[in-house]
C-alpha cells in the first residue's frame, strides 16, 4: 500500500492504495466516481478516458503510483457548481441538443477528449474532431451526432472550466 495524494475535479484526495491499482479502479471503487466507465480494460475503447494534468489518458492503463501529486479531471467535474445547482458544460449541453449520447457508455470519455480538444483551441472542423476522438469508440451513434455536438460546442464558444 502506498499513500497517494492528488486533486480530482479540484478537490484534494488522499488514500492508501496498491501502487499498481488502475486509476480507473481508484476512481470508481475507492472514490465512488462511477462516471468514468470501463469498456475494454485494454486501452482500445476510450470509455475510461480522464484528463491528467491537462492531457487525455485512458485510466485503465494508468497505475495509481503515477498520479501522486497530479491533477485529474473526470466527467463529474465538467458541469460548473453554483449555489443554484449545476450548470452543464457547453459540451454536455451540445450532446443533449444534437442527440450525441445514446446508451451513454462512451459519453464521459467522448466529453473529456472533446474538452481537451476545445481547450487547446480546436474548432468545428470535422477531420480535426475525428482525429481528437479517434481513441474513443462508440457502438451506438455512428459518430455523426457526436461530431455535430463537438462542432456545436466549438461554435457556441467556451465558458471557463468548471473545476
Amino acid at each position: 500500500m502506498t499513500a497517494i495524494r492528488f486533486l480530482v475535479n479540484g478537490a484534494p484526495v488522499e488514500l492508501e492504495a496498491p501502487g499498481m491499482r488502475r486509476l480507473l479502479d481508484v476512481l470508481r471503487e475507492d472514490l465512488g466516481l462511477t462516471g468514468t466507465k470501463e469498456g475494454c480494460g485494454e486501452g482500445e475503447c476510450g470509455a475510461c478516458s480522464v484528463i491528467l494534468d491537462g492531457e487525455v489518458v485512458v485510466s485503465c492503463l494508468v497505475p495509481a503510483c503515477q498520479v501522486d501529486g497530479r491533477i485529474i479531471r473526470t466527467v463529474e467535474g465538467l458541469a460548473a457548481r453554483t449555489p443554484d445547482g449545476r450548470i452543464l458544460d457547453d459540451l454536455q449541453a451540445a450532446f443533449l441538443a444534437t442527440g450525441g449520447a445514446q446508451c451513454g457508455m462512451c459519453t464521459p470519455g467522448m466529453l473529456l477528449s472533446a474538452r481537451v480538444y476545445l481547450d487547446a483551441g480546436g474548432g468545428p472542423d470535422e477531420d480535426a474532431i475525428r482525429e481528437a476522438i479517434a481513441g474513443n469508440l462508440c457502438r451506438c451513434t455512428g459518430y455523426t451526432k457526436i461530431i455535430e455536438a463537438i462542432a456545436l460546442a466549438a461554435e457556441t464558444g467556451r465558458r471557463p472550466a468548471g473545476a
Binding site: S49, L52, E55, V57
Partner: peptide, 9 residues
C-alpha cells in the same frame, strides 16, 4: 502510434 490517449502516455 495509437490515438491521442496512447500518444500522451
Amino acid at each position: 502510434v495509437g490515438a491521442v490517449q496512447i500518444q500522451n502516455r
